[in-house]
Design a protein around this nucleic acid. Structure first.
Length: 200
DNA sequence: AATAGGGTCAACCGCGTTCTT
DNA sequence: TAAGAACGCGGTTGACCCTAT
């Protein structure tokens, strides 16, 4: 099978960040026709995007039940628990965190947890080296989890302070050198959508 | 004030699986 | 049953932002 022709039909395919217009088209189309059959959806809606891209945009961002904002400490613990159980099965883990997407959890794990695990491991290595020198046996696993828990707690506190940096919450700060390079929120998009519906 | 480096996250890519014909 | 199409997942990338220097 030729993967190149899988999603596109040799028509111009747009890539990169989605514009507000594209978002509106997608929301509007799905509101009227429902989701699924993404390739034909992309074509029918007049979007110069692959079905894959539309699906991803919808699932990770436009769906009304997508929860945005900081991962709570409870969610962090759950993620850690489930990851310990299932490994990198992000979509499986995401199913247990309502409103969270696999992409979000994956990013969270890679950027936050993994970093702290590494730090904890380094500390552990360091402490075990010291232990060897001092002939003191350390319980490494409990130490690691304590360090990790501490790190995560530290992260939670810091993250609140960083809230205004990444514009999470409900507001999306659109980035990139594309037209419509502005700031809009999901509330904006959905209210426009509702207006469209009212006019139809 | 400039900029290098690191963090974050949306989006893309490749591939395995499932569905359809 | 086979082949093609679509879906779904996990890994990776690239652009932007923030902070430290």
């Amino acid at each position: 099978m030729d993967k190149r022709t899988c999603d596109s039909q040799d028509v111009e395919v747009r890539k990169g960040p989605w514009t507000m217009e594209e978002d509106l088209i997608l929301i509007n189309y799905i509101a009227n026709h429902g989701e699924g059959v993404w390739n034909s959806l992309a074509r029918s809606a007049g979007l110069k995007r692959t079905g894959k891209s539309c699906r991803l945009r919808w699932l990770n961002y436009l769906r009304p039940d997508v929860r945005r904002g900081n991962i709570t400490p409870e969610e962090q613990l759950l993620i850690m628990e489930l990851h310990a159980k299932w490994g990198n099965r992000w979509s499986k883990i995401a199913k247990h965190l309502p409103g969270r997407t696999d992409n979000e959890i994956k990013n969270f794990w890679r950027t936050r947890i993994q970093k702290h695990i590494k730090q904890a491991e380094n500390m552990n290595r360091l402490s075990s080296n010291i232990s060897e020198h001092n002939n003191i046996q350390q319980a490494s696993t409990s130490q690691t989890s304590t360090n990790l828990a501490d790190s995560i707690e530290t992260y939670s506190g810091n993250n609140n302070n960083n809230n205004n940096n990444n514009n999470m919450g409900t507001t999306f700060h659109h980035q990139g050198n594309f037209p419509n390079e502005n700031i809009w929120s999901m509330e904006d998009l959905w209210s426009i959508q509702l207006l469209n519906d009212a006019n139809n």
